[in-house]
C-alpha cells in the first residue's frame, strides 16, 4: 500500500478510536456521579439514624416521645402486608402469564390485553389506591385492613409479575417445547415439567422486583386508610389449639414502614427526623435483603440450567 494511503487510513482510525474512548469516558463519568449521589444520600441517612437503630427500636411501638418511639407495629405491618401481596400476586400473575403465553390464541384480543397489561405497569400508584378504596374497602367490605392493603399492592405489582413471567417463558427455546410435545406430552405436562422449572429463576426475579416496589409504596396504602399511629399488633397467625392457624390478622388495622417514616418526618421536633432516618435505613435494609435472597435463589436455580 502506498505510504500516503496508509497514513490516511491511520489518521481515520485514530479519529474513530478517539470518539470511541470519548464516549466511554462520558458514560463512566455519568455513572460515577449517579452512584456517588445515591451513596451519599443513603450514607447520610444511615449516619443520621444510626444512633436510634437499637434492639428497642424494633421492639417498641410508636410514642409521643421521640426517644421511646419504635417501629414494631410498622415492620410487622409491612411483613404481613407483603405476605398477603405475595400470596395474591404470585399465583395470579404467573398463571396469567402462562395462559397468555402458552394457551391464548394470538389474535387482536391477546394484543389488546398485552398492551393494557404493559400500560398498567406505568399507572400512578395512587390510582390503584382509589380503585382499591372503592373495590376492596367499600364494595367487598374488607375494611381498612391488612387484607385490603395486601390486595391493593398485589394489584399494583401484578403487571410486573405478568410481564416478567411472559418474558421468562418466551426466553425458553422453542426446540425444548417441541422436544416435549414430540414425546407425546400434553400442554400442561410441557408447562409443568419444562416451561415452569426452566423459567422459575427469572420469574422469581420479576416477583422480587415487584415486591421491592410494593414495600416502599405509601400513596395507595394511605388512600385505603392505613393508620399513622398504632400501638398494638395484629393477632398472631399461630395459635395453640387446632387448627393452629388463625386468619384474624387479615382484618386488623395496621401501618407500614413508609407511613411510619412519613408520619415522623411531618413532625416539627428534630428528634423525630432522626427516627425517620433510622426507619428509612431499616427499610432500605429490608429491600436489599429481599434482593439478596432473589440473587442467591436465581444463582442456585440457574446453575444447572443453560441453553
Amino acid at each position: 500500500m502506498p505510504t500516503t494511503n496508509l497514513r490516511k487510513l491511520r489518521t481515520n482510525l485514530n479519529r474513530r478510536k478517539l470518539i470511541n474512548s470519548g464516549f466511554a469516558f462520558l458514560g463512566a463519568t455519568i455513572i460515577a456521579i449517579a452512584i456517588i449521589i445515591l451513596l451519599g444520600l443513603t450514607l447520610k441517612m444511615a449516619f443520621q439514624g444510626a444512633e436510634r437503630i437499637t434492639p428497642e427500636f424494633f421492639t417498641s411501638f410508636p410514642s409521643r416521645r421521640a426517644s421511646r418511639a419504635g417501629i414494631l407495629s410498622a415492620w410487622v405491618g409491612t411483613c404481613l402486608v407483603m405476605l398477603v401481596t405475595a400470596m395474591a400476586a404470585i399465583p395470579l400473575g404467573v398463571a396469567s402469564g402462562i395462559y397468555l403465553e402458552e394457551y391464548a390464541k394470538k389474535n387482536w384480543l391477546a394484543d389488546l390485553i398485552e398492551i393494557n397489561v404493559t400500560n398498567l405497569a406505568g399507572v400512578p400508584s395512587i390510582i390503584y389506591g382509589l380503585l382499591a378504596l372503592g373495590l376492596f374497602v367499600y364494595e367487598l367490605r374488607l375494611g381498612q385492613s391488612i387484607l385490603s392493603a395486601g390486595l391493593t399492592l398485589a394489584l399494583l405489582i401484578l403487571p410486573v409479575v405478568i410481564v416478567t413471567t411472559r418474558e421468562s417463558i418466551r426466553a425458553i427455546p422453542n426446540s425444548l417445547r417441541e422436544a416435549s410435545y414430540a414425546l407425546g406430552a400434553s400442554k400442561w405436562q410441557t408447562i409443568w415439567d419444562h416451561i415452569l422449572p426452566y423459567s422459575f429463576g427469572s420469574i422469581l426475579t420479576g416477583v422480587i422486583i415487584g415486591l421491592s416496589r410494593a414495600i416502599g409504596e405509601t400513596a395507595p396504602i394511605i388512600t385505603i386508610g392505613a393508620l399513622t399511629f398504632i400501638a398494638f399488633l395484629p393477632k398472631s397467625p399461630f395459635k395453640s389449639e387446632f387448627p393452629f392457624l388463625s386468619f384474624e390478622w387479615l382484618q386488623a388495622p395496621f401501618t407500614v414502614m413508609p407511613i411510619q417514616m412519613f408520619n415522623w418526618v411531618s413532625r416539627p421536633q428534630a428528634a423525630f427526623e432522626i427516627n425517620a432516618a433510622a426507619a428509612g435505613t431499616v427499610l432500605i435494609g429490608m429491600t436489599l435483603g429481599i434482593n439478596a435472597i432473589a440473587i442467591f435463589l436465581r444463582y442456585q436455580l440457574r446453575k444447572d440450567i443453560k441453553w
Binding site: 427455546p173 426446540s175 425444548l176 417441541e178 422436544a179 416435549s180 414430540a182 414425546l183 407425546g184 406430552a185 400434553s186 405436562q189 415439567d193 419444562h194 426452566y198 444447572d304 440450567i305 443453560k306 441453553w307
Partner: peptide, 25 residues
C-alpha cells in the same frame, strides 16, 4: 416419535432425559 435437526436434550440429567418419554405416560 421424532429426532430433531439440532440435538435438543432437556436441561435435566441424562437419565431424566430418556425417562421423560415414559414419564409422560
Amino acid at each position: 416419535s421424532m429426532v430433531f435437526q439440532r440435538p435438543n436434550p432437556f436441561p435435566k440429567s441424562i437419565y431424566e432425559n430418556v425417562a421423560y418419554g415414559l414419564r409422560v405416560r
